[in-house]
């Protein structure tokens, strides 16, 4: 059984005077067999400066501890550049893992993409 995960960049309308975010949608199952690949793909989409990234996880089926590592790595990287990572559409089971590990306090989590875009930080 091999997990398959897909990463897609979504078009984003300009957010006016705010920092225009990169929106990436994750789809499929994320585990140790594909976590490293996903991390590389996410980083390939990020400019090396202050940035706003929204990860849409609505279509994420399964996410094991390797997947959580990827999220934490991205989070740390964004933090170090005073950027912002927002997770949207976190599936219920993953939300429970976040709660269990207190990651819900670390990550910025919003219910939908619309919510996340409204709160883009100032440039």
């Amino acid at each position: 059984m091999t997990a398959v995960v897909e990463l897609r960049k979504l078009p984003v309308p300009s957010t006016g005077g705010l920092l225009t975010p990169t929106v990436l949608a994750v789809r499929g199952d994320l585990d140790h067999t594909n976590a490293t690949q996903l991390r590389q793909h996410v980083f390939a989409q990020l400019p090396d400066h202050r940035h706003h990234l929204v990860l849409d996880m609505t279509a994420l089926g399964f996410c094991d501890s390797s997947g959580i590592r990827v999220l934490l790595t991205v989070h740390t990287w964004m933090n170090e550049r005073a950027g912002l990572l927002v997770l949207v559409g976190v599936p219920p089971r993953l939300a429970r893992v976040f709660e269990l590990t207190c990651l819900d306090r670390l990550f910025t989590i919003r219910p939908t993409l619309a919510h996340a875009l409204r709160e883009s930080p100032a440039p």
Partner: peptide, 8 residues
């Protein structure tokens, strides 16, 4: 509940 991921 409420215990964080260790090393975070």
């Amino acid at each position: 509940r409420g215990g964080m991921l260790v090393g975070m």
